[in-house]
């Protein structure tokens, strides 16, 4: 990726001067420098899609909020990662996610190890002001080792991307659109019948919630291992 000469730029994040390589994203630079920007669809080692909108930041001179995970830094940029307005939008965005499906942390396998739950804590979401949508969605336990519970899916597409970009199977994709979007395997068949699935389990490990989990895990027992991902990614890219 970073072949050849890469220029160094300087920018301000929350008032602090920081240096960065010109091909880095705002999110990367912010995290390297200890600034916290919440994310959900972002996952180190996977491509970024800018879908969850939690990493939106204010950039001086831009009348629109910019997606930190896909916006590259520029010389002289002045980035604000936290403001009352951003905090409020983030809280509402997480609130939207909670209202969308049937998230019940208390009886979830990922309770205590859930990215969505942590986000709620981080953005200070204490209650939901909008009505729950209560969609009636199914659970697919046909796979020998894993379970897909649509009730907890936030449509971050990490599973879709890891399966396509790292495992190369492209078993997962999305069907439908809008609020009716669902993750699917193959032709929306039962996961256990999938011809393309290699049962590698990467999708399960990258899933931020309890939407994908291992069979046999009881409530609060599902912890996800993700350290393999940056390693695999760098191997694929042929990096040192």
């Amino acid at each position: 990726m970073n072949r050849g000469q890469v220029r160094i730029v300087t920018l301000k994040i929350d008032g602090k001067d920081v240096g960065a390589r010109e091909n880095e994203t705002i999110l990367e630079v912010a995290r390297e420098n200890g600034f916290d920007i919440p994310t959900l669809c972002h996952m180190e080692g996977l491509s970024d899609i800018g879908a969850c909108r939690l990493c939106l930041v204010e950039v001086k001179g831009s009348n629109k909020l910019l997606t930190a995970c896909v916006t590259t830094v520029q010389e002289g940029m002045e980035v604000t990662t936290h403001s009352p307005r951003l905090d409020s939008y983030r809280r509402m965005t997480v609130e939207m996610l909670f209202s969308e499906r049937n998230h019940v942390c208390a009886v979830c396998v990922s309770n205590g190890h859930c990215d969505l739950q942590n986000l709620a804590v981080d953005v200070g979401l204490t209650h939901i002001t909008v009505p729950y949508l209560y969609p009636k969605v199914s659970i697919d336990a046909s796979h020998e080792r894993f379970v897909l519970d649509h009730n907890r899916c936030v449509l971050c597409t990490r599973c879709v991307r890891v399966c396509d970009e790292i495992e190369g199977a492209h078993t997962w994709d999305l069907m439908g659109r809008g609020v009716k979007t669902r993750v699917i395997t193959d032709l929306a068949e039962a996961w256990g019948d999938s011809e393309s699935c290699t049962s590698c389990g990467k999708c399960v490990q990258v899933c931020p919630t309890g939407a994908l989990f291992e069979k046999g895990k009881s409530v609060a027992e599902m912890t996800k291992r993700r350290t393999f991902l940056p390693y695999l990614t760098s191997m694929r890219n042929g990096d040192e």
């Binding site: 965005t93 996610l97 209202s99």
Partner: peptide
């Protein structure tokens, strides 16, 4: 807008439904 939302980003996917309701 709700039925035409592609569903990729959260505010549009869920926000339009909530606003519609």
């Amino acid at each position: 807008c709700m039925t035409e939302s592609c569903g990729k980003c959260v505010p549009c996917r869920v926000g339009t439904v909530q606003m519609y309701r």
